[in-house]
């Protein structure tokens, strides 16, 4: 610190005064962000109160019926209801697990992408793979519909013309491999985007490490394995732990646009369930109750993942 470097020239009082001022300054600098965090992360927690009311938009809470824990207990009110909740949780966990498993794909993709020598080809590949991230799920679905619809879908036309199938396949209205196909759509959309952080991490690796390894006789794959991979491991673990914390929030849009009666029992994840039961019917109390439960589960998962990381790698992110 500046005060220490020039310590001899100041009296103790002056140092103290300066430290006081410095603290003040640092606090002021952080203040705007603290306010923002408070406004956007803590203030909304006040909204949890709606979980205990039969809230109707426009009517103040004081005039709203207090229902206590009704929305929470309704989730487990009878065997059929519990079966529904379990089914939804099963879908959420299955799709999230597949999502976590496929989160190594952007790492692999980034490593191989960085090995491409031709800069223009590299750029093209990166642009083409990043682009899908910016297409909304609604458009992705209309694209999927064009490809896979029974009546005049591209795939069915192709297969029929080639004489490979006799009856058109109804791929979108089927509950075979729903979890897997949803994951694949997610990978297609997020691969290039997910790789950006790793590419940045790879660029940050000290070139001397590569040179030293090369001097030691390492080939291309050994360089990748012994220099690049350890170099981006910290980034990967931070994202993995955050990913585990978001295990239960695996999104809504994708499942909403792809859902239909045939695949509903497999595709209905927690967020979609809350939408179908809560939001569609203006039942905001129920929707809030589920989101409280979600937040609690996310917190538990985050700390669990963090302790696991401490145990395995000797360091966590929190």
């Amino acid at each position: 610190m500046g005060a220490k470097l020039n310590g001899q020239a100041y009296t103790t009082a002056a140092v103290k005064q300066f430290r006081f001022k410095e603290k003040y300054t640092l606090f002021l600098m952080a203040l705007p962000f603290l306010v923002l965090v408070f406004l956007f992360a803590y203030l909304p927690l006040y909204g949890w109160i709606y979980a205990f009311y039969d809230y109707r938009p426009g009517i103040p809470l004081s005039q709203t019926e207090f229902v206590g824990l009704q929305w929470f207990t309704s989730l487990v009110s009878n065997p059929y209801q519990m079966e529904e909740v379990l089914r939804v949780l099963r879908n959420t966990f299955a799709i999230s697990t597949l999502g976590i498993l496929t989160s190594v794909l952007p790492v692999i993709f980034a490593i191989f992408l960085m090995e491409i020598k031709s800069p223009s080809f590299k750029k093209i590949v990166q642009t083409l793979t990043t682009l899908p991230n910016f297409i909304s799920w609604v458009l992705v679905y209309s694209f999927a519909f064009m490809l896979f619809s029974v009546d005049n879908g591209f795939l069915n036309n192709l297969l029929m013309n080639m004489g490979l199938i006799e009856r058109p396949l109804n791929i979108l209205a089927s509950d075979n491999h729903t979890w897997l196909s949803m994951t694949l759509w997610g990978v297609w959309k997020g691969l290039g985007w997910g790789a950006i952080l790793y590419i940045a991490a790879i660029t940050g690796i000290d070139p001397e490490l590569y040179e030293a390894a090369r001097v030691d006789g390492a080939g291309r794959f050994r360089l990748m394995w012994h220099v690049t991979v350890p170099g981006i491991m910290p980034t990967f673990f931070v994202l993995l732990i955050l990913g585990i914390a978001g295990f239960i929030n695996n999104g809504f849009e994708q499942y909403f646009v792809f859902s239909n009666a045939m695949n509903m029992s497999k595709i209905e994840v927690l967020d979609l369930y809350v939408y179908n039961v809560g939001v569609v019917n203006n039942n905001f109390g129920f929707a809030t109750a589920v989101s409280i439960l979600k937040s609690i589960v996310s917190l538990i998962l985050l700390f669990a993942a963090n302790s696991l990381s401490k145990l395995v790698r000797g360091e966590g992110v929190i």
């Binding site: 229902v67 009704q70 209801q81 009666a261 045939m262 039961v277 809560g278 039942n283």
Partner: peptide
Amino acid sequence: PSDIKQKKAEVGKVIKEYSWKMMF
């Protein structure tokens, strides 16, 4: 009442889903 509202939502979801499954 709030509990009827929620039950209706759950039941409606089942009816919709199975209606389409039955047609096909």
